[in-house]
């Protein structure tokens, strides 16, 4: 990691909010799926409280990058530091040794992830979805965990759904429960993997509203999305990925109005055309 990575982007909006120390540092990450080179030497530093939006065509590696940060995929090169952990490895005498299942799980608790397809646990009620990990994994007191879950449900606008099963909810409602489930672990960073891509258009805003709200409360967020409205409203930086590289990285204002990369211009022309 060079010192250059630590300086905030020059075009960060001054006075908007003060960003903290680097909390996610991705350095030279390589990822292959078989012979397919998905992430090519990707580096990115995200500071505490920062909201970074990553966009790009499907297959550009943006979701894979997010999954690598959360250790849902193992990386083939480089390092990822997140929430104070060297993700997936420990260092011993300058050598990196892969962590076992339990230690990886411990690291993952500090990162929250929201998926395109919600992935709620369908066999248990909404409130059990939220309290399952705090109660069974963190051994939190059940009554306390339920009280907190109710607060979270209020926060995502679903105070009356605690006893519903996921199937009884609309997509937008399910995704908001999924956000509450992730928040219940009190993560230091929230990762969103195309959180609105599987939603009907009329349900997108209810999820984005929750996300904007979360960003205003100072949550560090990395969001893979094509919702440019969200990027304008909440992002500190917008990135474009293309064929496994980050090809553009700028504040929203610059990203949308004065993009440098031809890939960004082409991407924006396609996504803003309709």
């Amino acid at each position: 990691m060079t010192t250059q990575d630590l300086t905030p982007p020059t075009d960060a909006r001054p006075g908007d909010k003060t960003l903290g120390e680097p909390i996610v540092v991705i350095d030279g990450v390589q990822k292959y799926f078989g012979a397919h080179h998905v992430l090519k030497d990707v580096s990115l530093t995200v500071r505490r409280g920062e909201v970074v939006v990553i966009c790009g065509r499907s297959g550009s590696g943006k979701s894979t990058l997010l999954r690598c940060v959360d250790q849902l995929e193992t990386i083939d090169g480089g390092t990822i530091h997140a929430a104070g952990h060297l993700m997936g490895f420990r260092e011993k005498n300058g050598k990196r040794i892969p962590l076992g299942d339990a230690q990886v799980a411990r690291q993952q608790r500090d990162l929250g992830m929201v998926f395109q397809n919600f992935n709620l646990f369908p066999h248990i009620s909404v409130i059990d979805n939220i309290t399952l990990a705090p109660v069974r994994i963190l051994k939190r007191n059940k009554a306390e965990a339920r009280a907190e879950a109710r607060t979270l449900l209020k926060r995502v606008g679903l105070p009356d759904k605690e006893n519903a099963y996921p199937r009884q909810l609309s997509g937008g409602q399910q995704q908001r429960v999924a956000i509450a489930r992730a928040l219940a672990m009190q993560p230091k960073v929230m990762l969103f993997d195309e959180p609105t891509s599987a939603l009907d258009p009329e349900m997108i805003s209810e999820v984005l509203d929750v996300m904007v709200d979360l960003s205003r409360q100072g949550m560090t967020m990395i969001v893979v999305t094509h919702e440019m409205g969200f990027a304008r409203a909440a992002a500190d930086r917008v990135l474009l990925m293309h064929e496994g590289h980050i090809v553009e990285e700028a504040a929203p204002e610059t990203f949308f109005n004065h993009p440098e990369s031809e890939h960004t211009k082409l991407f924006l022309s396609k996504i803003l055309a309709h």
Partner: peptide
């Protein structure tokens, strides 16, 4: 996706099996 979700909240293999997959 259930396995991904269970991992994302920090469950070990046993916890994923016992709390999410087997039920």
């Amino acid at each position: 996706g259930q396995n991904d979700a269970a991992r994302s909240v920090g469950m070990t293999w046993r916890e994923r099996m016992w709390l999410v997959i087997l039920p």
